[in-house]
Design a protein around this nucleic acid. Sequence first.
DNA 1: ATGTATGCAAACCATTTGCAATGAC
DNA 2: GTCATTGCAAATGGTTTGCATACAT
Lengths: 164, 164
Amino acid sequence: MEKESKVKEIVKEKFTEYLIKNHHRRTPERYAILDIIYSDSRHFDMETLYQTMNDSNFRVSRATLYNTMQLLVKYKLVIQHQFGKNQSFYERAYNNDFHHHLICTSCGKVREDRDPTTKSLIENRKTRGFSATHYAVYIYGVCSSCQREQKKLLKEIKNQQKNK
Amino acid sequence: MEKESKVKEIVKEKFTEYLIKNHHRRTPERYAILDIIYSDSRHFDMETLYQTMNDSNFRVSRATLYNTMQLLVKYKLVIQHQFGKNQSFYERAYNNDFHHHLICTSCGKVREDRDPTTKSLIENRKTRGFSATHYAVYIYGVCSSCQREQKKLLKEIKNQQKNK
DNA sequence: ATGTATGCAAACCATTTGCAATGAC
DNA sequence: GTCATTGCAAATGGTTTGCATACAT
C-alpha cells in the first residue's frame, strides 16, 4: 500500500517533468487520469477507464482520455497493447514487472504470466540497426474455463448423435 | 523455388481437408486467396492483399477476403498480427520460421528477427490451465533510418539555436 | 492576454453485417 | 434444388478530428 502511493508520487513527478520539458500544460484532468491508471496494475480498455473516471469524482471526456493516453504512451508511463481485436488495451509501465500475456482466443480474457528468463533473454538480445525501447509477448490459446466449456459442448454433441 | 511450390501444394491440401471436415465449400476465391498469401513470406495488410488480388487475374470482394482470412486464421494457415494500429496484419503460418517483430514506432515499418532461443524457451514454458496454440513477440523501438533522421533533425535544431 | 486543452459532436476508417444473386454440392 | 458463399452497400464501433469554450501559463 505504502509502496503504491510512493509509485504514484514518482510517476506524477516524471509526468510533470515531461510536461514541462515539452511545453504541455499540467491540467487536473491529466493528473487525475494518471492517478486512476496507477491505482491498478492490470490492463484495461478505454471504455473501462472512461467509466471508472466518471464513477469517481472526476468527469473527463473521451477526447481528453485519448489525448492524454497518447502522451502517457509517448512518455513511457503507459504501455499500449492490442490483443487481437481492433481495440487498445493499456497498462501502467512504471513499477510493473514484465509478464507474458496469455490471451484466450475463445473468451478474449487476458491473463498475465511473469517470466524473468524470457525477459532477460529478449532484453540482452542486440539487434543491429534497431534501438529497442520496449517489447511484448503475446501467447494465444484457450483458458481453462473455456477448455471445460468446449469439452462439455463436445460431449453434448456426441450424446445428441447417439440418441438419433 | 521448387520448395515453395511444394509448400503451396501442402497448404492447399490442408485447407481442403479443413474445409471438407467443417462442411465449408471449396470455392475458387478461397484457393486463389491462399495461393496469393503463400506466394510471399512477409506480412501484409488487407488493403495490400486486396490490391494484389485484383491486380492479378482474380477479382475478389473485401467481404470475401475478410471472410476467408477468418477461416485461414482459425485453421492456423495464417497468423494475424496487430502492430499498434487498429489494423490487422497477416502472414503465412506454415513453413514460416518463428521470428520476433521489430516495430519502428517512428515510421511503422516492421522487420523480422529470427530467434530460435526465445522460441524454444516460450514453447517449453508450461502454464497451468492454459493450452497455448501460438505466440508472438513484438519489440518496439526506432529503426536505423529513423535514428539517422532524428539525429539530423536534432543537429538542425541546434544549429538554428546557435544562429540566433 | 495568449494560446493550449477540454468537451462535444461529427468524421474517419478498418471491419462486420444484411441481403439479393451466384454457384458448389 | 438447396443452401453456403459471394459482392455490394450500409452499418458498426473504436478512435480521431474540428471547433467553440474554458483555463493554465
